[in-house]
Structure formats: C-alpha cells, structure tokens
Simulated assay, not measured.
Amino acid sequence: MMKADGNVGFTLYKRGEIETATKNFNKAYIIGEGGQGTVYRAVISGVAIAIKKCKEIDESRKMEFVQELVILCRVNHPNIVKLLGCCLQFEAPMLVYEFVPNKTLQDLLDLQRSRLFHVTLGTRLRIAAESAYALAHLHSLPHPILHGDVKPANILLAEGLVAKFSDFGCSTINEKTQVVPKGTLGYIDPDYLLEYQLTTKNDVYSFGVILLELLTGKKPLLKERKSLTLMFQEAMANGTIVELLDSDIVDEASMRVIHQAAVLASQCLVVPGTMRPTMTLVATKLRQLVLADEVQQCPQPPLVLEDLAFTEMRSTTSTWHGEGKTSEAYSLEKKAILSIEFAR
C-alpha cells in the first residue's frame, strides 16, 4: 500500500492486499449487501476495515463509486464513516473504510421492536442528534453534499452506539436533476418525486421519518399500506400522539421533551420542503433535548447482546464520543462536556 500525495490519511491499496484480506472475496467475510455494492470485513496490517466492492461493473455503477470516493475524501467528521483509501486495480473501484462494529440503526430499531432490550429516550435522541450533525456538516460544506438516501440502514453504530453516517452511493455534490429516482421507499421526500431534483430539504424530510421511527418504534410503511408519516400528522392534528408513541419511552416526566421532538419531526416533514428547517437547526434543537434534566436522569442500561447483532458496550451513556458510567445521574460539568463535544 502507499499514501496518496497531498492526503496523508488516504491510502492506495494494491490488488493483492485486497484479495488476501478478503480471501478472494469469500462470502464468509460479507457483512453487508445493497444496491450500491457488497461490503466485506477484513484486516490489513492489523487494522480491521470494511471493503466495499461494486456489485456490477457497468459504467453507471463505476461513476457512483468514483463519486463516493471524491465525496468522502473531502469529509472529516466524527459522525461520518471515515474513508481510509481505495484500490483502483480492479475493474470496479474498491473503497476501504474504517470498520464500525455494531451494525446499523436499522438493526437496533428491529431489536428494540422485538422488546429484547430497552433503548432509552436519551439514547434515541442522542443517536438522532449525532446523525443530524453529520448531515448538517455535509450540507454546510463550501460545495454542499446531499446524501440522497437517508435511512436507518445507512447509520452505522460504533462503540457506545455512536452514530456514523455511511453509504454515499446516492450522494451528489451539486443540486441537479437525477435521471433515475434515488432513495428508499418510505423515506423519499414527496417533493423529490415531482421533479427528481435533489436538495438539502430532501435529506431533512428523510431524517424526519427516522426521528418518527425513534419516537414511535414503528416502521415507515405499516401493514395495509399505511404511512407512518400520515398517521403521525393525523395524530398531531387530533392530539392523540401519545397513542402512537413507543410505550417504552412514554413517561409523564419526559413528555415535554417527547412533545418537542415530535414537533421537530413534523417541521422536518412539512410540504413544501422550502418550509423545513435546516439540518443545523434540527441538530441544535436535538442537542438541547438530549441535555434536558428529565432525559439525563434516565441513563441507558448496558446492552449485552453478544448472541444477537450487537456486542457488549463499554459505554452507552449520552456522551458523544467519550466514556462514562451508566449508573449515575449527570452533573452540570458533564453537561458542559457534552456541549463542548457537540461543538466540534
């Protein structure tokens, strides 16, 4: 392997290194598959990595991988999966990322729905806040990056359940009309379906759907083809939102925070999209909710899920990137630390 000129943190890997690390792309090493490609877990020079291989090698797919390479080379944020390098010695590019051990927010939501463990309101809001800050960072770059496929499956969870946005195969650097629709059913902004013109507000809408999932525990598309967003909007209008919320987080002491989070979600889902808040405003509001006294008084119990999708967590408290104990309430000093971490 070699370091690319002008980018000390970016490595150009050799074909042999990739083939050896994946045992010639042995199926046993696969940790994820999707429309954009197949992801393998591997180890190179003692470092655990994730290698993304294009599923197809037609020209349109090659362009998506090159686009992802260009995008991620420009991004450095604690809540965005880090691109370590690539290999261009295959017919399709191979992208090498940091390895994130605990799968995705989608996995966490599925396990929560099965009632196998309890995910607190604070943990849900923290994951939402970290994800919001990641999108806000992308949108605020000199040349804004639009993700285009915001959904729980594209939010990886690192140690401590720290959120890291991934999969920029649908991303674009410029706001432009797409030849084919991008995104995932249930998360696609209705505005986008009218003209196929991707904007930052499309990401805001999709994020609003994720926030609904975290608050209600329900999937975006329910049985009988009911839409969670429609049910939510009706519940907000009728004053019956409590009936739609996940019973695991409904508590009289935290209803003020839950209501504010629900109002924020409704703002993200407003049509037309021009009326929606920016992701920076969404992230700032979520940070305030996470730091609320009633949220901080209920720390996340340890999640021991070695036989399921997740491994035991050292720290599942409402800290952004630091360590903490799960059995104690939070002091003003810790709140200050959280604020400093968020400001990075």
Rank of each mutant, 00 (worst) to 15 (best):
T20S: 09
C170R: 06
A158N: 14
V257Y: 12
T11A: 01
E294H: 06
A153T: 08
P220C: 10
V290T: 06
I340M: 11
G148E: 08
K201W: 08
E91F: 02
A92R: 00
Q178P: 04
L116E: 15
K164P: 07
Q296C: 11
S331Y: 06
Q89K: 03
G32V: 02
A336L: 13
E243M: 13
L269I: 07
K23C: 06
D293F: 07
A336E: 00
Y205P: 04
S45N: 12
D58C: 07
L138N: 10
N76W: 15
M1Y: 03
E341N: 11
K14L: 02
I44C: 03
L185Y: 14
E341A: 09
M2E: 07
V263Y: 00
T274V: 13
G122R: 05
D189H: 06
T274L: 13
L121R: 12
M255R: 14
M63Q: 13
T22R: 02
F310I: 05
A253N: 13
A129V: 05
Q288M: 11
F90G: 00
E91V: 03
T280G: 05
Q267I: 02
L281W: 09
A237Y: 11
T284I: 10
H259S: 14
W320S: 12
A237W: 05
R15P: 00
I57F: 03
A42S: 03
T200D: 10
I210W: 04
K325D: 00
V282R: 10
V100A: 01
F165L: 15
Y205I: 11
H77F: 06
E306D: 10
L135E: 00
G324N: 08
L212F: 11
L303N: 03
V162N: 04
L125D: 09
L141Q: 03
C87S: 04
L193E: 07
I241R: 05
E224I: 09
E252A: 15
E333W: 05
E19H: 02
P220I: 14
L269Q: 05
D307G: 08
T104E: 01
Q106I: 03
H143G: 08
E323Y: 15
A28H: 13
P142M: 05
G37A: 02
V75Q: 12
I31E: 00
R225G: 06
T104A: 03
V250P: 04
N102T: 08
E56A: 05
Q112L: 15
K334V: 15
G148I: 15
R41I: 02
Q300L: 12
V295I: 14
R314Q: 12
I127R: 04
E17T: 10
M255I: 11
E213Y: 10
L221S: 07
N238T: 15
V290S: 02
L105C: 08
K226R: 14
S60D: 01
I31H: 01
L84K: 06
S227M: 13
A136K: 14
K176P: 00
E68H: 01
R256F: 12
K164A: 11
P152V: 10
E294C: 13
D107T: 09
P142G: 05
Q67I: 00
D189R: 09
E159Y: 09
K226D: 07
K103M: 09
W320I: 13
